[in-house]
Amino acid sequence: MTETKNLVEGSWVPQACTLPTAEQPLRLAEFGELWASAVVGMERVDRLRVRLELRAEPAVAGRAADLMVRENRCCSFFTFSLITNGGRLALEVAVPAGHVDVLDALVARAVSGGRS
């Protein structure tokens, strides 16, 4: 498992993250805001992958895509897929086995409505 480090009580960032430490709480807040405002459903597809159903709106798709591109620059182990099908919008997030703890933390944050 990947080691994680606490930023503040209840939040996480993987040791592999290259985002400057000062920017990490801001990025966590961006994830929290997206999860709180746009996630309408979630399915844990398997141990290494989760599918978050988002509000099917162009602005939500744009925000999610922008955040995922920026996140992938500092945490390249993530695989993000933004999927539209039949008027629905979903974000799939996958990780290699060594980073399942990071996915677990991301899922916990989504379940809590974006709160730490």
Rank of each mutant, 00 (worst) to 15 (best):
M1G: 11
M1V: 12
T2I: 08
E3V: 12
E3W: 13
T4M: 15
T4P: 11
T4A: 13
E9I: 13
S11V: 15
W12H: 14
W12E: 09
W12I: 11
V13H: 05
V13T: 11
V13M: 03
V13A: 08
P14V: 08
P14K: 02
P14G: 00
Q15E: 14
Q15C: 11
C17N: 05
T18A: 03
T18G: 06
T18W: 00
T18S: 06
L19V: 04
L19F: 02
L19M: 13
P20T: 07
P20D: 06
T21L: 14
A22Y: 10
A22D: 14
A22C: 09
E23M: 10
E23W: 05
P25C: 02
P25M: 06
P25E: 03
E30T: 14
E30A: 15
F31D: 11
F31C: 11
L34E: 04
L34G: 03
W35G: 12
A36W: 05
S37F: 08
S37Q: 15
V39C: 01
V39G: 02
V39P: 01
V40F: 01
G41Q: 10
G41N: 07
E43Y: 12
E43D: 14
R44I: 15
V45T: 09
D46E: 10
D46A: 06
D46I: 12
L48S: 15
L48N: 11
R49Y: 08
V50Y: 01
V50S: 01
R51L: 09
R51S: 09
E53F: 11
E53H: 13
L54M: 11
A56I: 03
E57P: 02
E57R: 13
P58R: 02
P58I: 05
A59E: 15
A59V: 14
V60F: 02
V60I: 11
A61Q: 06
A61F: 02
A61E: 11
G62Y: 08
R63D: 09
R63M: 10
A64E: 05
L67C: 03
V69P: 01
R70D: 09
R70A: 12
E71F: 00
N72S: 08
N72M: 08
R73A: 08
R73D: 10
C74L: 05
C74Q: 04
C75I: 10
S76W: 05
F77P: 00
F77K: 01
F80Y: 07
S81G: 10
S81N: 10
L82E: 00
L82P: 07
I83V: 14
I83F: 03
T84E: 06
T84M: 03
N85H: 15
G86M: 06
R88S: 03
R88K: 02
L89T: 03
L91F: 01
L91K: 00
E92T: 02
V93E: 04
V93Y: 01
A94V: 05
A94L: 05
A94P: 07
V95S: 00
A97Q: 11
G98H: 01
H99R: 00
D101Q: 10
L103K: 03
D104S: 07
D104I: 05
D104C: 06
V107W: 03
A108D: 10
A108G: 10
A108N: 08
S112A: 14
S112M: 07
S112W: 02
S112K: 08
G114S: 04
G114M: 06
G114W: 04
R115P: 12
S116Y: 12
